[in-house]
C-alpha cells in the first residue's frame, strides 16, 4: 500500500520543534530585552506563533497529497 507511507514521512518529526520550544520557560521568562515596550516574556511567546505557522506550513507542503492526473 503506497498510500500508507504518507503518514510515515520523516518531515512529521519536525513538528516536535514547535511543541517543545514553547514549553521551555527558561527561554522566555525574563523582562529584558524589550521589544516595542513588550517584555521578552510576551513578545517571544507571540513570536513562537510564527514558529508554529512556519513549521506546520513546511510540513504540510512536504507531505501534501500529490494530485493524480
Amino acid at each position: 500500500m503506497p498510500d500508507d507511507k504518507r503518514d510515515r514521512s520523516p518531515w512529521y518529526w519536525l513538528l516536535l520543534v514547535p511543541i517543545a520550544i514553547p514549553l521551555m520557560p527558561f527561554l522566555f521568562n525574563a523582562d529584558e530585552p524589550r521589544l516595542f515596550g513588550f517584555p521578552l516574556f510576551y513578545w517571544l511567546q507571540i513570536a513562537f506563533i510564527a514558529l508554529g505557522v512556519g513549521t506546520t506550513t513546511l510540513v504540510y507542503q512536504m507531505t501534501k497529497r500529490r494530485r493524480r492526473p
Binding site: 512529521y12 513538528l15 516536535l16 514547535p18 511543541i19 514553547p22 514549553l23 511567546q45 507571540i46 513562537f48 506563533i49 514558529l51 508554529g52 513549521t55 506546520t56 510540513v59 504540510y60
Partner: peptide, 13 residues
Amino acid sequence: VPYTVITYPIVFL
C-alpha cells in the same frame, strides 16, 4: 498563548 501554539502541530499529527 503557548497552549494554542502547541495544539496545532499535535492536531496535525
